[in-house]
Write a protein that binds this DNA or RNA. Structure first.
Lengths: 338, 338
DNA sequence: ACTTTCTTTGCAACCGATTGCAAAAATAAT
DNA sequence: ATTATTTTTGCAATCGGTTGCAAAGAAAGT
């Protein structure tokens, strides 16, 4: 059983308050007092019980990190950055796996039980209702990788997926492709909807370009592979914008199996720039989300809310960047129509 | 501010103990009492503060999940399984990223501060000192993916890496390869040491087989790729046992770049069977660790320790299995020496 | 109906800390 | 040296619960 405040107080021959004060900065303690206490504390190997103190201070320094994306490799990176970032600020991530959870109420209850100071909802597929539920429960929340709502109800950090779709479109057009395809993730994922919207919208400005679209069942290798195999049955497009990297890599494998060459026969551009996209035997041209900045922003916002819970909700949207690799041709074809 | 026990007690017109009792199972409460309390609780949206109760019960249901493997994709799977498994038992994982941490004392202090009921050290590269530090601090601990110590000091769950090395050896020998290589991970990782040991030891029983070995700098794609590029400079072996999958996939890319074909020109077998190994455009033959069983066992052991902290430390070692894919030839060559 | 036994309930102390307040000690001002 | 001011310290209440104990109530036994 660990040593408590009282033990230290007794050994140092001082009051319990004195001990408490030496361990809370900004409190009034004389130099000698501090010395005595610190000596006793060291001898006993004392370190204050954060949970007990949370009772009176109302702060646990616990942050719920909730996600349902435990299969997309990009999220390992996300978790890495979040845990490090939070730790650096003296916060502890309480990891919550929402894979089989549909009711926000349960999560709220859980966060309440553990009096989490705040919650970070890191998911591109969870409905906005989750973040909202936390907010309504009075728990500071920031949503990472989500779609901004029209009237900001909670902090949202991420990229503009519509813009990313546009970016994919202009990139493909600039490479001279004229028959394009959008191969999305699940049709009900807002990320897929937005990316498609931006993609199609931009292409509408290029009348000489034709475009088709379809959806894979999930953001997964297999789904991407299946969908691409299907597409390859009948005349496929010259190039595809894949819903995300893992999907695109699945598509790549389908293309290879079909005996076609990338980028000569067919081009593909993904989104995320997850580690594997950079592997030389994958070498996927893709659109990079600035994960590090997104995570940093989230942490900034959540700590901001700890200080001022009534802070106005904010959207922080970052630009993406094309990562040039080997799945898109470089040459610019001269178009007959221009 | 959330409603408390007292609020409920007042609204129900009963004592605080009564409320407490209706929410602790095994406590003596009459049916009508329970009803009244539950009604009031529902009306107020009350749920007990787990942290406050931990003060008296000495149980937080918080489990430290500490790891430093935030770059090996297999660990996303590991985190997924751990979080789900723990949640199912009503435990909450407190994720600790030890990437930049070298001193176990800090982690121990942290776990103490949050009074974690137990700790799971999930890492193949962290020194045994970490687990030991927790144990010495009186915190129940189980080590996943670690090397068993001679006298069990703490629960260890994982595979027998020596045996896995043997398995790789016998597999390669059975395929008729006679010039083999071991391409390990970091030389100081116990997993690499053990795998090599088993591999070489087994091969010693096959005098017609020659073997070389070398090490990559890390369990990473790039390290594997670099090392294989180096090996390809001078006469490479016919087949390699790669330190793990990610390393092996890096090696695969080097081999492809070098214009050699797998498995015709060179064979490779990995270890882990991470998701990407099964991707059709990777298709790595590998040795599978039963991750699910390992995780389940860890959780079983840690919950066991919660009930009986003095339970004898135990090693649970699981067998591995060859996952046949496309990076090893199938034909059995007739050996000149037999 | 009365005692005995068992179950329910409330009181009050406690878990490990923090903090407002007032007394005590140290410093500064006169 | 005395008083006024500031700083340091301890007391005691509190945070949101749990739990041993004894009193009250219900059920069972005779």
């Amino acid at each position: 059983m660990p040593t408590t405040l009282k033990d230290v107080a007794e050994r140092a021959g001082v009051s319990r308050s004195a001990v408490s004060r030496t361990f809370t900065d900004g409190a009034s303690v004389s130099a000698k007092m501090r010395q005595r206490v610190e000596k006793a504390a060291k001898e006993l190997g004392y370190s204050p019980n954060a949970l007990a103190s949370s009772l009176t201070t109302g702060r646990t320094r616990l942050i719920g990190l909730v996600s349902n994306n435990f299969h997309n490799p990009i999220f390992l990176e996300v978790f890495d950055l979040f845990t490090r970032g939070l730790q650096d600020k003296g916060l502890r991530p309480l990891l919550v796996n929402l894979t089989d959870e549909t009711d926000p109420a349960n999560s709220v209850k859980m966060m309440r039980q553990y009096s989490a100071d705040g919650v970070i909802v890191a998911s591109s597929t969870l409905p906005a209702g989750f973040a909202k539920a936390f907010r309504d429960a009075g728990i500071p929340v920031v949503r990472a990788f989500g779609r901004p709502t029209r009237a900001p109800q909670a902090h949202v950090v991420g990229i503009d997926n519509v813009e990313a779709g546009r970016m994919a479109a202009t990139t493909l057009v600039a490479r001279g492709y004229t028959r394009l395809g959008f191969m999305g993730g699940p049709q009900d994922a807002t990320s897929t909807q937005d990316r498609m919207h931006g993609f199609l919208d931009e292409l509408a400005r290029h009348p000489h370009v034709t475009v088709t679209h379809s959806f894979a069942d999930a953001y997964s290798f297999d789904a991407g592979r299946q969908e691409m195999l299907r597409l390859l049955q009948s005349s496929p497009a010259q190039a595809y914008f894949g819903g995300d990297d893992v999907l695109s890599i699945g598509a790549l494998s389908a293309i290879a199996d079909h005996g076609l060459r990338v980028p000569d026969d067919i081009g593909i551009i993904g989104l995320n720039d997850m580690t594997m996209a950079g592997w030389e035997n994958i070498n996927l041209t893709t659109i990079r989300q600035p994960i590090q900045q997104i995570v940093t922003s989230c942490i900034e916002l959540i700590t901001g809310m700890l200080d001022d819970p009534d802070r106005y909700p904010e959207h922080r949207i970052f630009a993406c960047k094309i990562i040039e690799r080997g799945t898109l041709r470089h040459e610019i074809h001269i178009l007959s129509s221009s």
